[in-house]
Design a protein around this nucleic acid. Sequence first.
DNA 1: TTGTAGGCGTTATCAA
DNA 2: TTGATAACGCCTACAA
Lengths: 341, 341
Amino acid sequence: MPRKANQNASRAATLHDVAGKVGVSAITVSRALNSPDLVSEKLRAQILAAVDELGYVPNRSARTLVSSRSHTVAVLIPSLSNTVFIDTLAGINEVLDPKGYQILIGNTAYDDEKEERLLRAYLSHAPDGVLLTGTRQRPEMRQRLAKLGIPAVHMMELDPSNERLCVGFSQDEAGRQITTHLLERGYRRIAFFGARLDPRVMQRLDGYRKALQAAGCYAPELEYLNPKPSRIGLGVEMLEVLRREHPDCDAVFCCNDDLALGVLTGSHRIGIKVPEQLAVVGFNDLEGAAWATPTLTSVRTPRYRIGFEAASLLLKLMEGHNVPEQRQLDLGFELKLRGSS
Amino acid sequence: MPRKANQNASRAATLHDVAGKVGVSAITVSRALNSPDLVSEKLRAQILAAVDELGYVPNRSARTLVSSRSHTVAVLIPSLSNTVFIDTLAGINEVLDPKGYQILIGNTAYDDEKEERLLRAYLSHAPDGVLLTGTRQRPEMRQRLAKLGIPAVHMMELDPSNERLCVGFSQDEAGRQITTHLLERGYRRIAFFGARLDPRVMQRLDGYRKALQAAGCYAPELEYLNPKPSRIGLGVEMLEVLRREHPDCDAVFCCNDDLALGVLTGSHRIGIKVPEQLAVVGFNDLEGAAWATPTLTSVRTPRYRIGFEAASLLLKLMEGHNVPEQRQLDLGFELKLRGSS
DNA sequence: TTGTAGGCGTTATCAA
DNA sequence: TTGATAACGCCTACAA
């Protein structure tokens, strides 16, 4: 029969409960747990036993309140369904988890306003540090964080003005190099497929333009920009439009692998030979790229390391280290040339 | 030049700061923010202005400490790089975010012990509720949560004993049905490819066995179980082994789509015709399934709704509702029959 | 090595 | 409608 969810629920054990059981004061229990060497071995053993028996779990709120260190880090990323950011999270976790930090994941859904709302809301947790994606946050937010003494590190992009602390790579240069690769292979009518159109995509587009302009091949009509989220299906659709409007196009640079896999699939279905009739390159080098038919040329991005290094840097700042002289950590990228180009 | 990270950092504004500025007491400010109708309109306006000006953000630790409601929910999932759980998270978020709950995501890495450690650690946040994946947690943990009055809802699987609150579907029945589909299509030598071997996979395997045994086609040697994480590449490898050991096998049921996409890729590379020489079915129906060549037959699982419904149920419990009579919420699944079978 | 006193920022309780 | 007071659980500072 139905029963109250927390019927006969008992209060959680506190430091005092443990202290009472052992016959010492609360502070001694606190010390036994947090700085064991300050407590005699005998007492420590008794205390640990009592902790175990009572199932005592420290209350983080109380600790945060009194120590003004929350051991919490807010991480704002644009999406959870994008492998890129999941890999980044893994790197972050690798660094912060062993140090006892709790990560608060904020999903901004690629929305600047939502990002700001989230950041503001996370301030109520008094995070010891913040990891942000990109560098588009309004100066007000940076000032606010600075005022509160909360260090922030930006991930994925670099900041030419060198004002913010950044760990990432040059999206722009990556776009330029992969486009140059296509030019070197002899392709001339090179389209750009962009989806979502977040700042990283636009920077890749910039690199694409630079490469083509330098080669005298720039053709604005070959830029296909779609604000919708990337999906394989979108790549298929965009290819159809491209073939209708510019059948002479001989290569496509897709802003990410999802789109590129869609272009490969679409090409296969309508009988376009890749790379003979159409070269295709993607971005990020997800697992599927190497297993596609043909294998997909892409740009390998160091997202795990970005997370790892950004968290490491943040950790130092949270521990009171100075802001480093060199504020841009460029982790580079790698062209993976495969069968599709 | 280098400077201290939190040089000239100023204390965060408190309720008292706001109160002082307006010339009222702290409790009035608290009320103006939390139960606006208890405060006169005039005062409220003044207070909101002061809040804005000072950039006041409530301190959650203080609130949690005194109110013993943390507005926090711990969610334990086995992996962040598996779309299934990301979709589930999206459903959870959809319900809890508007209600002001902070979600703490714990990645158990498919490790029962790590799950238990995480859950214990999360207790220090005094979560108002807990969402768990599967039903394998030790009874001790359930008792502990019950003792603390923290409601828990289990996701993905169902609990035949009806002891736990579960939102999911019958993994076993899904495995049985997709296998039966292969039998109905005339396949007889049907292999099972399992990776990771978490409880859900083993339940699908159970269903597979039941179907084959009922048809008199069960052949233990066709069960390929690999504890490694699922990857496309693993599917390719497993196919190679299968072809070497059992070239007469005419169909494969893969425990998930990653493996199945690998089998499709591998088949293409070694020239096996799908489904003529080998039928392939996957599980979960990820986006890639519909775009594969040939399109991949799979089982569509309601993971977004699982998250949504589990969070909704938890919400009710956290709000003090009774535990429902019917403790198993079966959301079903759907066979997506496509070209690969 | 152990203990006492006080307070972190907020809300529950009671009172005006 | 507004306020005074106490308390949540813990840690810092100081004392013994």
